[in-house]
Computed example of a mutant assay.
Amino acid sequence: MLGPGVVRLTWAPGTAVRECDAAQVVERIVHLLAGAPYAILIDVREIVSMSLKAHHVFARDPLVLAAGMLGSGPMDRMLSAGSEQASHPAQYFLSELEAIRWLRSHLPVAPNPLPTSPTPKSPHVDRPAA
């Protein structure tokens, strides 16, 4: 978790991401967040491939508000290309901080709590001694 509503996914180096891998990840995230909508940062810098069907799993998750793909060069950009067909905003990034900032901009704004007025103090009343 990168904060409320933002999940970071980092694959083990050398992973070839398949449809079943993506489905398991989505299932775990949904369980972790109790079905709440979320933004996801997927680090593709160390993976070797991501199947088109794996992209489809991430792209069609109705709980995803936005997806950032974090890479380090042209090959990672190619691995991320399938995310462009998503039903939510998706973008490729070279900077993790920039990606997180962008993802957070897609989270719903929490409503401001109603201001609470301070409890009025009772005026001091002297009671006559009994």
Score class of each variant (00 low, 15 high):
69 M>E: 11
39 A>W: 01
81 A>S: 11
52 L>R: 14
79 L>D: 04
72 S>D: 10
62 P>K: 12
44 V>E: 00
36 A>E: 13
83 S>C: 11
42 I>P: 03
58 F>W: 15
67 A>H: 00
58 F>L: 15
18 R>L: 14
35 G>T: 05
59 A>R: 08
82 G>T: 04
41 L>V: 03
81 A>M: 03
25 V>S: 02
48 V>T: 13
49 S>P: 05
67 A>I: 08
63 L>S: 14
50 M>W: 04
60 R>C: 01
77 R>F: 06
41 L>K: 04
52 L>W: 05
69 M>I: 15
18 R>G: 11
37 P>G: 11
39 A>F: 04
54 A>V: 11
70 L>C: 03
45 R>G: 05
17 V>G: 01
75 M>P: 02
34 A>E: 10
32 L>T: 08
69 M>H: 01
23 A>R: 10
71 G>I: 06
35 G>R: 07
77 R>M: 12
20 C>I: 09
73 G>R: 02
74 P>Y: 06
39 A>L: 00
35 G>Y: 08
61 D>N: 15
25 V>A: 07
72 S>K: 08
63 L>F: 10
67 A>T: 11
56 H>G: 05
75 M>L: 13
63 L>A: 06
51 S>G: 09
62 P>I: 09
77 R>A: 15
64 V>E: 07
21 D>P: 03
54 A>N: 12
64 V>M: 12
26 V>L: 04
54 A>W: 14
54 A>H: 05
31 H>L: 03
19 E>R: 15
74 P>Q: 13
22 A>L: 11
76 D>H: 05
49 S>V: 12
69 M>P: 01
79 L>A: 05
43 D>C: 06
51 S>C: 14
82 G>L: 09
33 L>E: 13
62 P>D: 14
77 R>G: 03
18 R>K: 12
45 R>M: 00
59 A>T: 02
30 V>P: 00
83 S>E: 10
20 C>Q: 07
61 D>Y: 06
59 A>L: 03
30 V>G: 02
61 D>T: 14
24 Q>S: 09
23 A>P: 02
43 D>P: 04
78 M>D: 14
22 A>T: 04
19 E>Q: 15
66 A>D: 12
60 R>F: 00
79 L>F: 09
48 V>F: 02
22 A>I: 11
18 R>F: 07
51 S>E: 14
29 I>P: 00
22 A>F: 11
41 L>A: 02
36 A>T: 10
19 E>F: 09
37 P>A: 10
26 V>A: 07
25 V>F: 08
64 V>W: 09
71 G>L: 01
62 P>Q: 09
75 M>C: 13
22 A>K: 03
55 H>M: 12
45 R>S: 11
65 L>M: 15
48 V>D: 04
42 I>E: 07
55 H>A: 10
52 L>A: 11
44 V>R: 01
81 A>T: 02
58 F>E: 00
64 V>L: 10
84 E>L: 10
72 S>L: 01
65 L>T: 04
76 D>L: 03
33 L>V: 10
80 S>T: 08
49 S>E: 13
33 L>C: 13
36 A>F: 07
